[in-house]
Computed example of a mutant assay.
Amino acid sequence: MQGSLDLFAPPAAEPIAIGPDAWLLKGFASTQTDTLLATIGQLTQQAAFRHQVTPGGHAMASAQASCGTHGWVTDKRGYRYTTEDPLTAQPWPAMPSSFRELAVRAAAHVGFEGFDPQSCLINRYQTGAGMGLHQDKDEQDLAAPIVSVTLGAPITFLFGGMQRSDKPSRWLLEHGDVVVWGGVSRLFFHGVAPLGKKAVHPVTGAVRYNLTFRRVES
């Protein structure tokens, strides 16, 4: 049954190369989706979703929360990681073992052995919400890969190059898909197109969740 651990589930599809040292793993998390969604609900009771504001004063389209030893935040002071949730002044919720094990397993599956994520940023996209092309460069450790998990409604992932002007390739991400990139592609620009009006999933409705795992400090 989808969402529960199943020792007899078929193996995930072969990795699809979307760039140098960058891979799309179709359905890689498909046997864990129910657990992951339930855990998101538990985590966001401790660290609520919020629409953070960029240094330029613009509210982000996606609502965000974090778990792990470090959480990613943005405000008028800039983009950065903190060890405490600014809304509660409490440490971010610990990263659940189900999250960590999935990220480590996905990274190892495409050759990034020894990945030890310190932060998981949880994005919630609703109809019309997207994220423009950007680089993940707020981390001290750029040698570690990034692992991104899609849950819920399908969305189009944009994967570009080292320049913002590089034309990105487009990849449909569906419930349970995982993207891993690092090495040559670690600082490639990437984003997601706005969630379409007809994009829905039987469990989450017109909502897509994204788990992004990163190593923050060396």
Rank of each mutant, 00 (worst) to 15 (best):
D141Q: 11
G176D: 05
G132Y: 02
E217L: 11
H190Q: 04
A17M: 12
H70V: 07
T127C: 06
I18S: 06
H190T: 14
I40K: 03
L187V: 10
I16Q: 14
A47N: 12
G3A: 01
A106F: 13
A107H: 01
Q90K: 15
K197V: 13
L25S: 08
F157C: 05
Q42P: 05
V192I: 11
R170C: 01
D21V: 10
D177H: 06
S66R: 05
Q52M: 12
L187E: 13
G182I: 11
T82P: 00
A29L: 04
S169F: 03
A48N: 11
D138H: 14
G68E: 10
L158K: 08
A143E: 15
H51P: 02
Q126V: 12
V73G: 01
V73S: 02
I18D: 01
T204M: 08
L187P: 04
K197T: 13
Q118K: 08
A38P: 08
K197D: 15
L24Q: 08
L36F: 11
Q45W: 07
L172I: 10
V207F: 04
W72I: 01
T127M: 06
T82D: 08
E113T: 10
T44I: 02
P194A: 12
T212Y: 04
S62R: 15
R105C: 15
D75N: 00
L173I: 00
L142I: 15
I40C: 08
A29P: 01
H109T: 13
D136I: 09
V203K: 09
G71R: 06
T156S: 13
A38G: 15
A13C: 05
S165A: 15
G78C: 03
E113G: 08
I16P: 00
K198Y: 06
F112Y: 14
I40A: 03
I40Q: 06
G27W: 07
G56L: 09
P154E: 11
G3E: 00
T212A: 03
Q46P: 00
Q2N: 08
A9N: 09
S98L: 08
R215H: 12
T44M: 02
A108S: 13
D136S: 14
Q45H: 10
D116H: 13
C120L: 03
Y79I: 00
F189C: 14
W23V: 11
T35H: 13
N210M: 06
H190C: 14
A65Y: 04
Q52R: 03
A22C: 04
R214V: 04
G78D: 00
D166K: 11
F115Q: 06
R80A: 01
L37P: 12
V200M: 02
Q135S: 07
A59E: 05
L133Q: 11
R124M: 09
H134W: 11
P145K: 11
K198A: 11
T127G: 07
H51T: 00
